[in-house]
Design a protein around this nucleic acid. Structure first.
Length: 601
RNA sequence: GCGUCUGUAGCUCAGCUGGAUAGAGCGUUCGCCUUCUAAGCGAAAUGUCGAGGGUUCGAAUCCCCCCAGGCGUACCA
């Protein structure tokens, strides 16, 4: 890599300058990490190293410091020097490297060669070195359909899993099902009302103002009630004859179980459809059944992390930075949500994952300190737990905000997917940083125009594919009304691309004007590696959508100004090598974010 | 009150591990289809980077404070 070579040259110069005492107080140990970057303004050169940060040690101005370093590099005088591959020029505190054309072209050739050899695997790296990560996301309650926010976590989580895997992590995707607690009782009671209604009995949801007893009044339980009656005719008959205000214990249990399964099944189907795959669905009830919750409490007890107060059992989370201690066992003897969740996270640790990543909605942020406290109580470092807090989604339609309430009529994820499609929904859900509230404009996401980044990127892919097709098929010349022969036999072209040699690409650099265009697009392609890496390191899938949009823009521009297919077969082949590379990278990027890469549009 | 996220062009947002003149897209105006998809390309205009301090050779970027908005602040899950 030329970047490393620049840095190496600089290091050599710097060391000599230090040895000869020209760098004032700068010693070899306090040299900060220097970076070679592509300058925004390309007139400065191809790569640039900023050495201004050394000035505090050297006691000289940036320019003087740069001069004393460059003095010991290569041939030439003063501010302009030359080495085998670069021309070096000082500008203020910047040392700029202009890569000599021949080296540059060779670098470009090698990028294309690597892409064509690795195909959609280009950019794969081993940053993670097999580290085992458990990624938990969505984990919606089995009490209703997914709302838009769940869609964001689903898209984000599945993409993150893909990026991390691409970067050498081993990722286990898990979904936690909160199938215990009051909410399930509420669900069962709500289903009972719907069943009564379906049986033609006059029943309404009671007005409630207590926090522990409420109802899910959404329409979705109506369908659930229908299938309950269908599948449990005797029970339905009993209910009809008794017409009680509330179901008896046994029936209630049955209703709870039915509703839970019904909704969960629907959720699973929707996730699959949305291209989100979980390795495991983890049930809260299983924790209770195995006694894991109790044994986890024993563990905390043994560590002196629990105490009794006001007839409840408390967890000393404030010992580890939480604002206050938290109730672990209520006065009525039941556990809080936190209790089971601590047991769940303890289980994650026990299963041997070295990193626990959770995607939670921003409304759960207050929950982080107590969870972290639990992790630390068990003797694990606090940073094994990474919580990615996702800001919520604002939906707008016809210029109006659509609020998403949970228990009233709302726009669900299913509605959204039906309206705008899976590709657009996924793309839109991840294209903003997780820290930003997402403005989801349904009309825009639906539009098949340049306003919509999804189509812009997909269109670039389809366009590129189209060129590849045209290269190996006969075409109609509409003006002269003749059939143009195919330029290549399919096998001929494929064999060329699959066994690419760098020499065959040298033809690209003959025409100076075109060479500039080729370099622009190849440089963009080579950025993909870094985008993947940063995206994985920062847990930021949106960087990939940003990149894809930029790559698509570069390609569209390239397409407009450069003719690919021509009589010159050798040149055409080499150009097609670039086009094929573009296809691989876009395809790879879209695959990672779970969006289709259509070959025709 | 406390915690947390956000505040960059009319709109939606990049840039925020500090660096050389702050970038896109949309919208506006004007161009480009006689050979590879015009779902595209080109040109023009647009900014007290929320305000104020500080650190630094250098700040949209780091620190402090203030202002505005979202979210949270349960023995709910």
């Amino acid at each position: 890599m030329l970047k490393q070579e620049c840095l190496e040259l600089l290091r050599q110069g710097l060391n000599k300058a230090i040895d000869t005492g020209e760098c004032g107080g700068l010693t070899k140990t306090d040299i900060p990490e220097l970076k070679a970057e592509i300058p925004k303004n390309r007139e400065y050169g191809d790569l640039s190293i900023n050495i201004s940060c050394l000035c505090r040690y050297t006691g000289k101005s940036p320019l003087e410091t740069a001069k004393s370093i460059v003095k010991y590099i290569g041939e030439g005088e003063g501010c302009e020097k030359e080495v085998e591959k670069f021309k070096i020029k000082i500008a203020g505190g910047f040392i700029n490297f202009k890569i000599k054309t021949e080296s540059l072209n060779r670098e470009m050739n090698s990028v294309i060669e690597e892409i064509l050899k690795t195909k959609t695997e280009y950019g794969k790296n081993n940053e993670g070195n097999g580290e085992r990560i458990i990624l938990e996301y969505v984990s919606a309650n089995p009490t209703g359909p997914f709302h838009i926010g769940h869609g964001r976590w689903a898209a984000l989580g599945s993409t993150l899993a893909n990026v991390l895997k691409f970067s050498g992590y081993e990722v286990y995707q898990e979904y936690y099902v909160n199938d215990a607690g009051n909410q399930i009782n509420n669900l069962g009671r709500s289903l009972y009302i719907r069943v009564l209604q379906q049986l033609g009995i006059n029943a309404e949801f009671p007005e409630t103002d207590t926090k522990t007893k409420s109802y899910y009044t959404g329409e979705y339980l109506t369908d659930c009630a229908k299938s309950f009656i269908e599948q449990n005719p005797q029970v339905a008959e009993e209910i009809r004859t008794k017409q009680c205000e509330e179901a008896d214990e046994k029936t209630h249990k049955q209703l709870c179980e039915f509703a839970k399964t019904y909704i969960l099944t629907g959720q699973k189907m929707l996730l699959e459809k949305f291209r989100v795959h979980f390795d495991n669905f983890y049930f809260e009830t299983s924790l209770h059944e195995r006694g894991d919750v109790q044994s986890c409490l024993n563990k905390l007890q043994a560590k002196g992390m629990l105490y009794e107060k006001e007839n409840a059992l408390w967890f000393k989370s404030s010992l580890y930075g939480d604002d206050e201690d938290r109730v672990i066992k209520k006065t009525d003897g039941s556990y809080t949500y936190l209790t089971a969740d601590i047991a769940y996270h303890y289980d994650k640790l026990r299963r041997g994952f070295s990193k626990i990543i959770n995607i939670w909605g921003a409304d759960h942020h207050g929950y982080i300190p107590r969870m972290r406290a639990a992790i630390e109580s068990f003797g694990y470092p606090a940073d094994v737990l990474v919580v990615l807090l996702g800001q919520l989604v604002n939906l707008s339609m016809n210029g109006e905000q659509v609020r998403m309430g949970k228990r009233t009529k709302m726009v669900t994820l299913r509605d959204l997917i039906e309206e705008v499609g899976i590709d657009a929904t996924r793309y839109w859900m991840i294209m903003r940083d997780i820290d930003n509230t997402l403005e989801f404009d349904i009309d825009l996401a639906k539009s098949k125009s340049d306003e919509n980044p999804v189509f812009y990127v997909q269109y670039a892919h389809a366009r590129a594919c189209s060129i590849m097709r045209n290269a190996v098929t006969e075409r109609q010349d509409t003006i002269n009304k003749v059939t143009l022969p195919k330029i290549f036999e399919k096998s001929e072209l494929e064999s060329y691309l699959n066994n690419i040699s760098q020499n065959s690409l040298d033809i690209l650099w003959k025409d100076e004007q075109e060479a500039i265009e080729f370099r622009t697009i190849i440089r963009k392609l080579s950025e993909y590696k870094e985008v993947i890496l940063t995206s994985a390191k920062k847990y930021s899938p949106y960087l990939i959508t940003n990149y894809l949009k930029e790559l698509a823009a570069v390609f569209h521009k390239f397409y407009a100004q450069t003719r690919i297919l021509s009589e010159d077969k050798e040149l055409t082949k080499a150009k097609l090598a670039i086009i094929k590379s573009v296809i691989y990278i876009i395809k790879s990027g879209l695959e990672i974010i779970g969006v289709n890469a259509p070959e025709k549009m």
